[in-house]
């Protein structure tokens, strides 16, 4: 083979695959090769469908730091990918990465997609991260999902600010932990005012 052929052939053999497999160094540095490859494959799926990849990277790194095995890491990342997809179905294509990640957590907590859609329509263009996060936190605190949803939707309907949503969470936490709310606090959980949220 003439030297003139060696150069382009080497580029084709080595360079092109390198370009095609753009990899995240954080993963290749900290995960074994098979796990990193599996996570990259899931990231490719996310990219192909327009979903954010950074939450997947963070989930894989979380697993690595906490000493999880390869299968568990890949399952967790795959599960998150599915939740992100469902979150986007609920919120639509305009939702940003933070909103999708937060909504994915809400769905995982057992909240119905319909609750997220209602919240989104009530917020009409205002950021969704805090209301969805508070909704999820209330459920994590042990508030039944329907009751938590009604309470958060009521505050959204009242035009509540992010700070007011955070205050709602604090009041609920205090009440549920047996600490009486302060004199200026209003009851944390509103009586149900909305029709049941569609699932």
């Amino acid at each position: 083979m003439s030297p003139a052929c060696v150069f382009p052939l080497a580029i084709v053999m080595l360079g092109v695959p390198a370009l095609l497999q753009a990899q995240d160094r954080r993963l290749t540095d900290r995960l074994d090769r098979a796990t990193a490859a599996g996570v990259h494959q899931l990231m490719d799926s996310a990219k192909a469908t327009g979903l954010p990849t950074e939450p997947l990277v963070q989930k894989a790194l979380e697993g690595s730091t906490l000493g999880a095995d390869s299968e568990r890491i890949q399952m967790a990342v795959a599960s998150l990918l599915g939740q992100l997809g469902r979150a986007r179905e609920a919120l639509g294509g305009d939702a940003n990465e933070a909103e999708l990640t937060t909504a994915a957590g809400a769905l995982r907590a057992g909240l119905p997609p319909g609750a997220l859609r209602r919240l989104q329509s009530l917020r009409s263009g205002r950021p969704l991260v805090v209301p969805i996060a508070v909704l999820t936190d209330l459920v994590a605190e042990g508030v039944p999902p329907e009751q938590a949803t009604q309470s958060v939707l009521q505050l959204a309907r009242d035009g509540g600010s992010d700070d007011e949503f955070v205050a709602l969470r604090r009041r609920t936490q205090m009440e549920r932990r047996g600490r009486p709310p302060g004199p200026t606090d209003r009851p944390a959980l509103q009586p149900a005012a909305d029709p049941p949220v569609d699932r």
């Binding site: 030297p3 060696v6 150069f7 580029i11 497999q21 753009a22 160094r25 990849t53 950074e54 990640t101």
Partner: peptide
């Protein structure tokens, strides 16, 4: 030696390309 040099250059280029492929993916947000 010209063939060797071409091969070495190819390898170097491939390494550089592979390095540039190690991009942090959208890490800005979080």
């Amino acid at each position: 030696w010209l063939a060797g040099a071409a091969l070495a250059a190819s390898l170097l280029l491939a390494v550089l390309l592979r390095s540039s492929g190690d991009i942090p993916v959208s890490r800005v947000a979080s």
